[in-house]
């Protein structure tokens, strides 16, 4: 159904693995979500001795596609090193590339992002770039070898939803054939549904589920919303209009007044 670098995903739900109250709750959230992709951060959970083995083993046992990420990397070099480590640990070419440019908003350093993409693509990686809705940057990323784009909805962990609807619509219209994923900023299922209604192919989120009071229930809520949005987009929604359009005939009324 959805093609990401030749891999078909069953649905448009990518779920992060950080910040859950416990691994048991994480596993439960994944079961309820039916998410087809798990993102996992290497940098925070490792250290020089790669001590995250237990945790990584548990992520593998979720039995979904694994998308390692370079979360927390602030430079091209850091991101490239982390990507190599990820390939070794998870035996995958996929890498969610994050090069953070600003500490308060965690917005991407798009210059570093393009450079790191070029390096990693030449090295055989399949890059999922965490980017903004900027069309010029998006174009550069595609030229650097990306076959997927992941614009933010809002700053990471903010839960603000889709901040720049115009920009995201423009991006969808501008790149009709590129798989587009909303990455970051979602707080509520309705926002995920909205992203899918705009025609995005998937959403990626973490905090909204992990930090919910009942992460597993919230995971299911997001899965349901994503499915609803996806169905709605495929069903060709009506166009909004300014005046009422009665759904039943209005006979005997002076409707041309």
């Amino acid at each position: 159904m959805l093609d990401f670098y030749g891999t078909t995903l069953a649905n448009g739900f990518m779920l992060g693995t950080a910040q859950y109250p416990s691994p048991a709750i994480l596993a439960d959230a994944f079961r309820r979500s039916g998410a087809s992709v798990a993102t996992v951060s290497l940098r925070r959970e490792s250290g020089q001795d790669r001590a995250g083995q237990d945790f990584w083993q548990m992520i593998r046992a979720l039995d979904v596609h694994i998308l390692p990420n370079t979360a927390g990397c602030h430079s091209v070099k850091e991101a490239v090193t982390t990507a190599h480590m990820a390939r070794e640990v998870f035996d995958t070419k996929w890498i969610k590339l994050e090069v953070i440019g600003e500490e308060d908003t965690l917005q991407p350093d798009v210059f570093g992002l393009v450079e790191a993409t070029r390096i990693l693509t030449e090295d055989g990686f399949q890059v999922f770039p965490y980017t903004t809705e900027d069309l010029v940057v998006a174009d550069r990323l595609l030229h650097a070898g990306c076959e997927v784009l992941m614009p933010w909805g809002a700053p990471i962990g903010s839960g603000l939803g889709l901040n720049n609807l115009f920009g995201l619509r423009a991006m969808r219209a501008h790149f009709p054939d590129v798989p587009l994923v909303i990455d970051a900023g979602l707080g509520l299922p309705s926002q995920a549904a909205q992203a899918m209604e705009l025609g995005f192919d998937a959403v990626l989120l973490n905090t909204a589920v992990a930090k919910a009071g009942d992460p597993a229930a919230m995971a299911e809520a997001f899965a349901t919303a994503i499915r609803a949005g996806q169905l709605a987009a495929a069903a060709d929604p009506m166009e909004p209009r300014d005046m009422a359009a009665p759904s039943t005939p209005v006979i005997g009324k002076a409707f041309l007044s």
């Binding site: 691994p23 925070r44 959970e45 490792s46 250290g47 020089q48 001795d49 001590a51 995250g52 083995q53 237990d54 945790f55």
Partner: peptide, 11 residues
């Protein structure tokens, strides 16, 4: 709070 067995040194 970091998933993974501790090494000998703090980061």
């Amino acid at each position: 709070m970091i998933e993974g067995q501790a090494g000998r040194h703090v980061t």
